[in-house]
């Protein structure tokens, strides 16, 4: 009896090696799936499937209720003929340019101030970050009041330079300028943080060596700090481009895209078409263009990064 059992047992172990890897890989698959399942379900349901639906809706003329009519690429054709679409795209470009050429340099200046040999750094660094903390809606409402033609502090400020009662948000060009100013105010602190961390990471010896060679502050900044900050400047620019494509809140709150579409963005225009005019198909086409642009930017960045790394590997 006992020998028999032993025999069975050895037979079992002899068979096992053939079975085990498979069972183990099934087990591993189950484990991995269980870990990933909650995230994947939520993500597919609320992100991936909706993107696909948006693409689908964009081929329909649809008011959001009942079934739409299939119109093929008509929405996209109309979009290319739509002046407001081109205005929006131009305005989005302005947001991108402002982010890269005003916000990022200002963020860098702020970071440099936080590391400058002056007193009161704690106060400065504490307050500089404030604008990035509060909600865009609050920021927008606050600045609308500060830009008010009658009681706003901004007009009092510019009256020193001879401008009287500027109606900032009621004319296209001043409205765009005013909202861009607010964007700079709100987001520069974010870049300040990125730059501060990067500057702190630069080895002190480099500066000491430069000092021995008789370099002044400007030389040190342009020969050491700036070149070593290049990766941060590049990644900040990426964040700025992607963030600017998504811009919506501040424009919606401050101008609603007006006056007369003067500050319209892809985001605000899409929202109006979808939830004010109920042109859901047309709005989906705008939304998909936004997605497409973001995807192109992302792929370009990835490709550049890949190319840079490959080149680096050969060097």
């Amino acid at each position: 009896m006992e020998t028999q059992l032993k025999g069975v047992r050895t037979a079992n172990t002899a068979v096992q090696p053939a079975v085990r890897p498979k069972r183990k890989s099934v087990n591993k698959f189950v484990t991995i799936s269980l870990f990933l399942a909650p995230a994947i379900i939520v993500y597919v349901f609320y992100v991936l499937y909706p993107i696909f639906s948006t693409l689908l809706y964009s081929f329909y003329k649809w008011d959001g209720v009942g079934a739409g009519t299939y119109v093929g690429l008509q929405n996209y054709v109309n979009l290319l003929k739509d002046n407001v679409f081109w205005t929006s795209l131009t305005n989005n470009t302005w947001v991108i340019l402002t982010s890269i050429f005003v916000q990022i340099p200002l963020g860098l200046i702020m970071a440099l101030m936080l590391l400058a040999p002056i007193r009161g750094i704690r106060l400065f660094s504490g307050v500089y970050f404030f604008p990035f903390l509060i909600s865009t809606v609050a920021v927008g409402l606050l600045w609308v009041l500060m830009l008010d033609p009658l009681n706003g502090i901004i007009n009092r400020l510019v009256s020193v330079f001879g401008f009287e009662n500027v109606e900032w948000l009621s004319q296209s060009h001043t409205a765009m300028f005013a909202v861009l100013l607010v964007i700079v105010w709100q987001f520069s602190p974010f870049y300040m943080i990125l730059f501060k961390a990067a500057i702190v990471g630069i080895p002190e010896e480099l500066y000491e060596a430069a000092e021995i060679d008789g370099a002044n502050a400007f030389t040190k900044f342009f020969r050491i700090t700036l070149p070593l900050l290049m990766p941060t400047i590049v990644s900040s620019s990426i964040l700025a481009i992607v963030g600017s494509l998504k811009a919506f809140d501040i424009f919606y709150v401050m101008t609603g895209g007006g006056p007369n579409h003067g500050t319209e963005l892809l985001g605000t225009y899409m929202f109006k078409q979808a939830f004010v005019n109920f042109n859901m198909g047309y709005a989906s086409a705008i939304a998909f263009v936004m997605f497409f642009l973001a995807m192109i930017v992302t792929i370009l960045i990835q490709a550049l990064d890949f190319y840079r790394k490959k080149k680096g590997a050969y060097a």
Binding site: P50, M270, F275, A287, F288, M290, A294
Partner: peptide, 20 residues
């Protein structure tokens, strides 16, 4: 696929999420 979501404009999901 997850990381790409950081680049995604929310607008691309707005109408379907509204319908859902």
């Amino acid at each position: 696929l997850f990381i790409a979501g950081m680049m995604l404009p929310i607008h691309a999901t707005l109408i379907p999420v509204f319908k859902l």
